[in-house]
Simulated scan of single mutants.
Amino acid sequence: MTPAFSHLDIDTLERWLDDHSEVTLVDIRDPQSFAQGHIPGSRHLDNDSATGLLEQVPRQRPLVVVCYHGHSSQQAATWLASQGYTDVYSLDGGFTTWQHRLPSRVAVT
């Protein structure tokens, strides 16, 4: 059985953002970490905001899940795929690698 999500590298995500591709970024880190820095355009996702995401984001739109290091996002991506999303990605290296490689592309709430 193939995984319900795909792995996405940082270079590809950076290119998608530069190209203004239609993609939804969800960050599953804790609220304080998200507030201190996140990928611009991402939205915080937790148990409380999951219903809103499911109601607002079209199932066919690419969905990228971001966590600290790219591990927890795989479980979340699997769950989102089980909710009917057809194009789900887990960001390899997570926010930690993004922040290290692209410090100028970090937003603060």
Rank of each mutant, 00 (worst) to 15 (best):
V65P: 01
W79K: 09
S82A: 15
Q75T: 12
D87L: 06
L63K: 01
L80G: 07
S73D: 07
D87V: 07
G70M: 07
Y85F: 04
E55R: 14
V65H: 05
R61K: 13
V88R: 06
L53K: 06
T86Q: 07
Q74F: 05
W79M: 13
Y85G: 00
D87R: 08
Q60L: 11
P58T: 12
Q83K: 09
V66L: 01
S72D: 13
L63Q: 01
Q60D: 11
R61Q: 13
R59M: 03
L63I: 09
A76Y: 03
L80W: 07
G84W: 02
G84N: 03
L80Y: 06
Y85C: 00
H71L: 15
H69R: 12
A81Y: 06
W79F: 15
A77H: 07
D87W: 04
P58N: 11
H71T: 14
Q56S: 15
T78G: 10
V57A: 09
P62T: 12
L80T: 02
P62Y: 10
G84Q: 01
E55C: 14
W79D: 06
E55F: 15
A81K: 08
P58S: 14
S82Y: 10
L53A: 03
Y85V: 01
P58Y: 12
S72L: 14
R59I: 03
S72V: 11
Y85T: 00
Q60M: 09
Q74H: 04
S82H: 10
Y68L: 12
Q60C: 04
Q74W: 06
T86G: 05
R61L: 14
L53C: 08
S72E: 11
Q56N: 15
S72M: 13
G70I: 09
S72K: 13
L80Q: 05
Q60V: 10
D87E: 10
A77Q: 07
P58E: 13
V66H: 03
T86S: 08
V88F: 01
E55N: 15
S73C: 11
P58F: 13
G84Y: 00
G70Q: 02
C67L: 04
S82D: 14
Q74E: 08
L54N: 05
A81N: 05
Q60W: 07
A77V: 06
V57S: 11
R61T: 15
S73P: 06
L53E: 04
L63D: 01
L80H: 06
L54R: 06
H71Y: 13
T78R: 15
H71C: 13
L63T: 02
